[in-house]
Amino acid sequence: MSAAVEFRNVSVESPQGRLLLDDISLSLEEGTITVILGRSGSGKTTLLRTVNRMVEPTRGDVLVKGQAFAADKAKSIRTFDLISLRRSMGYVIQETGLFPHLNVERNVGMVLEAEGRPREERIRRSHELLKAVELDPATFAERLPHQLSGGQRQRVGLARALAAEPRILLMDEPFGALDPLTRSEMQDMLRGLLNRLKMTVLLVTHDLDEALFLGERIVLLSEGKLVASLGPEEFMRSSQPEIAAYVCAYHRGERNAENREREGRG
């Protein structure tokens, strides 16, 4: 397997000089799902955003399919390269960022529209994608984002991210704002979809349950440092203190749920 994305000693400093990411080295195998786990402020989102250059590494490189965007040469990257880099990746965020003035169909087709593809193709493709995220095009294509529920919006956001058939999908807490039931429906739908599409996925979450359900590799970040990069089973068995703390909190959550269930029955 080859690396689809490779982080080489990536450090990011905030404009105030605070170290957000500290010397991260990591490679994402092609066609796998990697979950970045960590508390708020651990640098998860920053790491994700270095992949599509929404954040520029202060030191180190992020290589995408062997293509280096050396940080020290950042100034010389032509806008064109940046645009094509971004178009080759899907991007899904918790707030969805749907264009509120455009209907679902045009939201989904926006990347194709930006590439100047013909209207029929955009419509055909957006209908295909709506079906893929389990929304009926006949019902939803003409709706505006404010007419959708939170889960439906997130589905549209996902469909939009997939429109240009990207090989890499970046997802930042995609289901963070959803109620637990909708959340688990979305996780099911996403897992099925990703199994079919075989994309390289980088997903940020603070939810271990989600990480275990979706991830083939779990990367734990703490205060900008990479703590671990393990498969789900190894992760659960690890005796590393930072991981153990996570796993312990997770088991407590499970026990609480069982207790509640038992009390409910009794």
């Binding site: 929404m54 645009i83 094509s84």
Partner: peptide, 9 residues
């Protein structure tokens, strides 16, 4: 943010 990340010029 999304408009930038999707590669709109």
């Amino acid at each position: 943010e999304v408009a930038r990340a999707l590669g709109l010029t």
